[in-house]
Write a protein that binds this DNA or RNA. Structure first.
Lengths: 339, 339
DNA sequence: AATTTCCGTGAAATCGATTGCACAATCGAT
DNA sequence: ATCGATTGTGCAATCGATTTCACGGAAATT
């Protein structure tokens, strides 16, 4: 900057003012400075600026892992939104390990990061205290926390369950099964409640024995299918609370001789890439990940500019994606197995 | 830091020396300082340090997109390695858009980033000049460039092609087809060369008409299968140069009545998650992504510490993953269609 | 003509660390 | 007792920006 100043025959203060247009500068000198900036191809050093301004234009994104498409989607869309607003992303995956979480957050704080988008915080970790102390804007995404004072962007989980039930009921299904995610996580209980309630009021039945608790991974879908089948196979529709488990269940059902969707209809949730790469293509519900991330980034940008301070909670609805794994009840040749 | 200094009754210089153990400090005062640091829970501000040291402990990772699993793997493994060395990751996806690429790199440079891991640079972009000018360590990953003076970590692409051919030859296949990636990218030509050469020396044949140029996406696998089938279906084994295309081709082949692997064996490359979630599970080759990223991070860390200055090129081999889509030739009931 | 207002500019402080240099204290050797 | 070497510490400069404050001169007001 000194070079530019010398070249334009002004002080560094003036150069700074031209760059940031913070305070009006005489037209003539402004042009002179701009020309000098061009000449030496000067780009302000962001570190020095950050030190002075206490703002880095960096957003941290913390996810439990980078394997599941859910989380890579978060990163993808967050990156998109951040880039559009002139922010860069610092990412970290924590394996839900409180220690890693803490170390990472600590680092971000020391880097004076502008905000953090956090997915699947371990509730019991001391991380939240860490954040409270430093007053860094934080947005929880995908999973709400017990604490209502922290901004969050989440799916309407109850609505998702209701939507799954609604679609299947409309196809004439009456006997249901469900493969859930871990039920100690509240969003999964909400999803189940929406599913169950809608089935009830729609005149269908969801026997408690036909609820299998999985872990969101492919394998547990297969285990779920086995469990349900062995319990007594008198259901015609299965909803798995994410696509990985839905695909796992579907493959197992097919392997055990059931036709999809002839004998059994199956639905997932997430609309991951795999869901349309398999045969038959999976009927599922898309989570509005792009919008979620956009909102999250927005919240942080605004908060870091102190434009708002209210802890808002944004709830977004899923979108039904009908493909080939759901069909009218009784389309296949299978007889319901009694017990 | 001033608070700590006052509390411990020393100067800030001494506090700094305790923190960095750069210069010996008297045992007694060191303990006093450490206690003071504990008391005020002091953590050095990394921005100030970066400004002074001209080193940020940040590594940039630039990928063309965050959709394909290949690139999310890069990020995942790079994050792992970086975290282990005390670095954080700044990521950006460019859509291979030279403008976005430039903007992003520019940003990283202005942030005084320690190094950049770059995947699939657009060769014609002005980015490399940009980087040359600032002397930031850079490592190309996954795809080599014409310029030999830039460090790179790449797959042994010729070897991968050879490995695919070898496996299929060992199963007795003699008539081959190949679905390639874009052939203007050198790595794909190398893969094809390895495939072709090994088939030749192994006594098989790869008719030029049975080479279809895809674009690495799912759809082009299906198109490739159609093309090959319509050209004349006298091949018993297909290698697609990545898993997405392999799965696309496999689904189309199945849809057109061929049994996999009975009639036609099929192989991919990458070992993406989808590859074992489909039925039948895909035989493929795993790229050593973890090792690639580890090497890349290592190169950057070393370069940024000026421990080495030589532009090394690291070549790593793939690993064969045999699953269910390859079988001995002639296992199925299909008769080869002559023409 | 004197006073006030306004605008543009520069000098210097600031952000929070690291480090070169100078100096004081300790020690051992002559 | 004197000297040189060694060790530990503090002062002040530095990194590269932003911003407060003060000041000079032009314009506006009386």
């Amino acid at each position: 900057m000194k070079d530019v100043a010398r070249l334009a025959n002004v002080s560094v203060s003036t150069v700074s003012r031209v760059i940031n247009s913070s305070i009006p500068v005489d037209e003539a000198t402004r042009l002179r400075v701009e020309k000098a900036i061009q000449q030496v191809n000067f780009k302000p050093n962001l570190i020095a600026r950050s030190l002075r301004m206490k703002s880095t234009n960096l957003i941290g994104v913390v996810v439990p892992e980078l394997q599941h498409e859910t989380f890579t989607s978060f990163i993808k869309f967050a990156e998109e939104s951040a880039e559009a607003r002139g922010y860069n992303l610092v990412i970290g995956s924590t394996n839900t390990n409180p220690e890693t979480e803490e170390r990472f957050i600590e680092n971000l704080i020391r880097r004076n990061i502008d905000g953090i988008i956090f997915s699947r915080v371990s509730d019991h970790s001391r991380v939240l205290k860490l954040i409270d102390r430093t007053k860094i804007p934080i947005v929880i995404i995908d999973r709400s926390l017990a604490r209502e004072d922290i901004p969050a962007v989440v799916l309407d989980n109850y609505g998702a369950g209701a939507m799954a039930a609604g679609h299947l009921l409309s196809l004439g299904h009456l006997s249901f099964a469900c493969i859930t995610g871990p039920l100690d996580i509240s969003i999964n209980r909400e999803r189940l409640a929406g599913f169950r309630d809608t089935i009830m009021t729609g005149g269908g039945r969801l026997d408690e024995r036909y609820i299998f608790e999985g872990n969101f991974k492919y394998d547990s879908g297969g285990r779920g299918a086995d469990f349900l089948l062995d319990t007594g196979a008198d259901f015609t529709a299965v909803w798995a609370q994410n696509d990985y488990m839905a695909i796992g269940a579907m493959n197992r059902l097919a392997a055990r001789g059931f036709s999809i969707p002839g004998d059994i209809s199956i639905m997932g949730l997430d609309n991951i890439e795999h869901s349309w790469m398999i045969m038959p293509a999976l009927t599922t519900m898309a989570q509005p990940f792009r919008q979620m991330c956009e909102s999250a980034v927005d919240l942080i940008v605004k908060a870091s500019r102190k434009e708002t301070t209210d802890a808002s909670r944004i709830v977004l609805g899923p979108e039904l994606v009908i493909r080939e794994t759901t069909a009218p009840a009784g389309a296949g040749s299978r007889k319901l197995v009694g017990h």
